[in-house]
């Protein structure tokens, strides 16, 4: 029990962020019309591509001789970039179609 309380104390910032972000995430898209479900999903898909930052850190920290880390890290960077770039471009292409007409 003490460990658990300590853990909460040590990580309280992160726990606060998690809880608040859950509510923000739900509130922010609460009233989306069904027309936008697909683009919204695609946009959210691009945003979780932020995982690429982890891949960059892994890559940047790998020792020069550690080929397992280098190769896997490289692969992670490529995949993460695919997620980010592909995600945003696809979303933009979908939304291009929604542009207002005079």
């Amino acid at each position: 029990m003490k460990d658990f309380l300590n853990w909460i104390h040590d990580n309280q910032q992160i726990i606060y962020i998690v809880i608040l972000m859950i509510f923000v995430g739900i509130e922010v898209i609460g009233r989306v019309p069904s027309v936008l479900h697909t683009p919204l999903m695609s946009g959210a898909n691009a945003i979780h591509g932020v995982v690429i930052i982890g891949a960059i850190i892994v890559m940047g920290k790998a020792e020069a001789g550690n080929y397992v880390a280098l190769i896997l890290g490289f692969l992670a960077v490529v995949l993460g970039t695919l997620n980010v770039v592909g995600g945003f471009v696809v979303t933009d292409r979908m939304l291009e179609m929604f542009k207002k007409k005079k």
């Binding site: 998690v18 479900h37 999903m41």
Partner: peptide, 19 residues
Amino acid sequence: DNKVMLTGGILVGAAGTLL
């Protein structure tokens, strides 16, 4: 301990579940 990954990830996790 990277805040932008944390916020981005949780945000999508929550919004994605609702969606």
